[in-house]
Amino acid sequence: MNQRIQKILIISLFAIVFIMFVGYSAFSSKMEIKGIARANTSWNVAIESIAVNEAMTKGRGSNISTVIENGGLIASFQSSLLYPGDIITYDVTVANKGIIDAKLDDIVFEQRNIGDEAKEENLSGEQLVINPIIYHYSGISKDEVLLADHKTTFQVTVQYNPDVDKTPLPEQMKSTSTIILSYIQNTNE
Protein backbone atom coordinates (compact mmCIF):
# COMPACT_ATOMS: atom_id res chain seq x y z
CA MET A 1 0.00 0.00 0.00
CA ASN A 2 2.72 2.38 0.96
CA GLN A 3 4.49 1.51 -2.22
CA ARG A 4 1.34 2.17 -4.16
CA ILE A 5 0.88 5.53 -2.53
CA GLN A 6 4.47 6.33 -3.18
CA LYS A 7 4.08 5.50 -6.83
CA ILE A 8 1.05 7.66 -7.13
CA LEU A 9 2.86 10.48 -5.38
CA ILE A 10 5.87 10.23 -7.63
CA ILE A 11 3.80 10.13 -10.77
CA SER A 12 1.78 13.11 -9.58
CA LEU A 13 4.88 15.08 -8.82
CA PHE A 14 6.25 14.32 -12.26
CA ALA A 15 3.03 15.45 -13.79
CA ILE A 16 3.09 18.68 -11.83
CA VAL A 17 6.68 19.38 -12.78
CA PHE A 18 5.90 18.66 -16.41
CA ILE A 19 2.95 21.01 -16.39
CA MET A 20 5.03 23.72 -14.77
CA PHE A 21 7.77 23.25 -17.33
CA VAL A 22 5.40 23.48 -20.25
CA GLY A 23 3.73 26.44 -18.68
CA TYR A 24 7.05 28.24 -18.16
CA SER A 25 8.19 27.52 -21.74
CA ALA A 26 4.92 28.78 -23.13
CA PHE A 27 5.46 32.22 -21.48
CA SER A 28 8.16 33.27 -23.90
CA SER A 29 8.17 34.34 -27.56
CA LYS A 30 10.93 34.71 -30.08
CA MET A 31 10.09 36.84 -33.08
CA GLU A 32 12.37 36.76 -36.08
CA ILE A 33 12.43 39.60 -38.62
CA LYS A 34 14.35 38.85 -41.78
CA GLY A 35 15.23 41.35 -44.48
CA ILE A 36 16.88 41.24 -47.85
CA ALA A 37 17.86 44.37 -49.75
CA ARG A 38 19.38 44.61 -53.19
CA ALA A 39 21.28 47.46 -54.86
CA ASN A 40 19.94 47.40 -58.40
CA THR A 41 21.99 50.27 -59.65
CA SER A 42 23.60 50.98 -62.99
CA TRP A 43 26.38 53.28 -64.13
CA ASN A 44 26.54 54.10 -67.85
CA VAL A 45 28.30 57.24 -69.01
CA ALA A 46 29.70 57.05 -72.54
CA ILE A 47 30.29 58.95 -75.77
CA GLU A 48 27.19 58.68 -77.85
CA SER A 49 28.24 60.47 -81.05
CA ILE A 50 30.93 62.51 -82.81
CA ALA A 51 30.10 64.46 -85.93
CA VAL A 52 31.33 67.47 -87.93
CA ASN A 53 29.71 70.77 -86.98
CA GLU A 54 29.40 72.31 -90.43
CA ALA A 55 28.47 75.73 -89.12
CA MET A 56 31.70 76.00 -87.20
CA THR A 57 33.90 74.52 -89.93
CA LYS A 58 35.75 76.84 -92.30
CA GLY A 59 38.19 76.64 -95.16
CA ARG A 60 39.11 73.73 -97.34
CA GLY A 61 39.84 71.18 -94.67
CA SER A 62 37.89 67.95 -94.54
CA ASN A 63 36.96 65.21 -92.17
CA ILE A 64 38.50 61.85 -93.03
CA SER A 65 36.83 59.67 -90.43
CA THR A 66 35.15 59.52 -87.02
CA VAL A 67 34.98 56.37 -84.88
CA ILE A 68 33.43 55.45 -81.56
CA GLU A 69 34.78 52.30 -79.99
CA ASN A 70 35.21 50.37 -76.80
CA GLY A 71 31.59 50.75 -75.78
CA GLY A 72 31.66 54.53 -76.13
CA LEU A 73 34.71 55.05 -74.00
CA ILE A 74 36.85 56.19 -76.96
CA ALA A 75 35.99 58.48 -79.84
CA SER A 76 38.50 59.31 -82.59
CA PHE A 77 38.59 61.59 -85.59
CA GLN A 78 40.97 62.17 -88.45
CA SER A 79 41.08 65.46 -90.33
CA SER A 80 42.93 66.88 -93.28
CA LEU A 81 43.78 70.60 -93.25
CA LEU A 82 45.05 72.25 -96.42
CA TYR A 83 45.65 75.90 -95.77
CA PRO A 84 46.52 78.04 -92.75
CA GLY A 85 43.29 79.10 -91.14
CA ASP A 86 41.36 75.93 -92.03
CA ILE A 87 39.15 74.88 -89.13
CA ILE A 88 37.18 71.69 -88.61
CA THR A 89 34.90 71.48 -85.58
CA TYR A 90 33.45 68.28 -84.17
CA ASP A 91 30.40 67.99 -81.92
CA VAL A 92 30.98 65.29 -79.32
CA THR A 93 27.97 64.10 -77.31
CA VAL A 94 28.32 62.33 -73.96
CA ALA A 95 25.25 60.56 -72.60
CA ASN A 96 24.45 59.39 -69.08
CA LYS A 97 22.26 56.34 -69.65
CA GLY A 98 22.54 55.05 -66.12
CA ILE A 99 20.42 55.92 -63.12
CA ILE A 100 23.12 57.70 -61.18
CA ASP A 101 24.06 61.36 -61.68
CA ALA A 102 27.64 61.90 -62.85
CA LYS A 103 30.12 64.71 -62.41
CA LEU A 104 33.06 65.62 -64.67
CA ASP A 105 35.89 65.25 -62.22
CA ASP A 106 38.85 65.93 -64.51
CA ILE A 107 39.79 66.96 -68.04
CA VAL A 108 43.22 66.04 -69.41
CA PHE A 109 44.18 67.64 -72.70
CA GLU A 110 47.36 66.78 -74.57
CA GLN A 111 48.75 67.60 -77.98
CA ARG A 112 51.75 66.09 -79.69
CA ASN A 113 53.32 67.02 -82.99
CA ILE A 114 54.77 64.22 -85.07
CA GLY A 115 57.65 64.60 -87.44
CA ASP A 116 59.88 67.63 -88.09
CA GLU A 117 59.26 70.71 -86.12
CA ALA A 118 57.96 73.88 -87.66
CA LYS A 119 60.01 76.87 -86.68
CA GLU A 120 59.60 80.56 -86.87
CA GLU A 121 62.18 83.22 -86.47
CA ASN A 122 61.36 86.00 -84.09
CA LEU A 123 62.52 89.60 -84.27
CA SER A 124 65.67 88.69 -82.42
CA GLY A 125 66.50 86.05 -84.96
CA GLU A 126 65.74 83.14 -82.70
CA GLN A 127 64.15 80.06 -84.10
CA LEU A 128 60.99 79.25 -82.19
CA VAL A 129 59.02 76.05 -82.53
CA ILE A 130 55.40 76.68 -83.34
CA ASN A 131 52.41 74.48 -83.51
CA PRO A 132 51.21 74.27 -87.09
CA ILE A 133 48.08 72.46 -85.91
CA ILE A 134 46.11 73.74 -82.95
CA TYR A 135 43.53 71.76 -81.04
CA HIS A 136 40.93 73.35 -78.83
CA TYR A 137 37.87 72.25 -76.88
CA SER A 138 34.90 74.23 -75.58
CA GLY A 139 31.44 73.74 -74.10
CA ILE A 140 32.51 71.55 -71.24
CA SER A 141 34.20 72.23 -67.92
CA LYS A 142 35.37 70.50 -64.81
CA ASP A 143 32.79 69.77 -62.07
CA GLU A 144 29.90 69.92 -64.51
CA VAL A 145 27.09 67.57 -63.49
CA LEU A 146 25.58 65.22 -66.02
CA LEU A 147 22.25 64.05 -64.64
CA ALA A 148 21.01 60.52 -65.15
CA ASP A 149 19.22 60.14 -68.49
CA HIS A 150 20.74 63.38 -69.82
CA LYS A 151 23.29 64.29 -72.49
CA THR A 152 25.83 67.01 -73.03
CA THR A 153 27.51 68.12 -76.28
CA PHE A 154 30.79 69.95 -76.50
CA GLN A 155 33.09 70.97 -79.37
CA VAL A 156 36.58 69.92 -80.35
CA THR A 157 38.25 72.12 -82.95
CA VAL A 158 41.32 71.41 -85.03
CA GLN A 159 42.86 74.34 -86.88
CA TYR A 160 45.70 74.93 -89.27
CA ASN A 161 47.58 77.64 -87.41
CA PRO A 162 46.97 80.84 -89.39
CA ASP A 163 50.26 82.25 -88.12
CA VAL A 164 52.43 79.74 -89.95
CA ASP A 165 51.98 81.10 -93.47
CA LYS A 166 55.27 82.88 -93.31
CA THR A 167 57.17 80.02 -91.81
CA PRO A 168 59.06 77.37 -93.74
CA LEU A 169 57.14 74.23 -92.95
CA PRO A 170 58.10 70.60 -93.28
CA GLU A 171 56.42 68.81 -96.14
CA GLN A 172 54.26 66.74 -93.93
CA MET A 173 52.93 67.60 -90.55
CA LYS A 174 50.99 65.46 -88.23
CA SER A 175 49.65 66.22 -84.87
CA THR A 176 47.66 64.17 -82.42
CA SER A 177 45.55 65.30 -79.56
CA THR A 178 44.00 63.45 -76.66
CA ILE A 179 41.22 64.72 -74.44
CA ILE A 180 40.41 62.52 -71.45
CA LEU A 181 37.18 63.17 -69.54
CA SER A 182 36.90 61.51 -66.15
CA TYR A 183 33.36 61.20 -64.85
CA ILE A 184 32.56 60.13 -61.31
CA GLN A 185 29.37 59.62 -59.38
CA ASN A 186 27.88 62.92 -58.27
CA THR A 187 27.23 62.79 -54.52
CA ASN A 188 25.74 66.28 -54.20
CA GLU A 189 28.38 67.32 -51.69
Binding site: K30, I33, K34, G35, I36, A37, A39, T41
Partner: peptide, 11 residues
Protein backbone atom coordinates in the same frame (compact mmCIF):
# COMPACT_ATOMS: atom_id res chain seq x y z
CA UNK B 1 6.33 35.12 -34.86
CA UNK B 2 8.21 36.10 -38.01
CA UNK B 3 8.25 38.79 -40.69
CA UNK B 4 10.05 39.27 -43.99
CA UNK B 5 11.06 42.57 -45.60
CA UNK B 6 12.28 42.69 -49.20
CA UNK B 7 13.63 45.95 -50.64
CA UNK B 8 15.13 47.26 -53.89
CA UNK B 9 17.51 50.21 -53.78
CA UNK B 10 18.62 51.90 -57.00
CA UNK B 11 20.99 54.72 -56.14
Amino acid sequence: LSAVLETDLKA
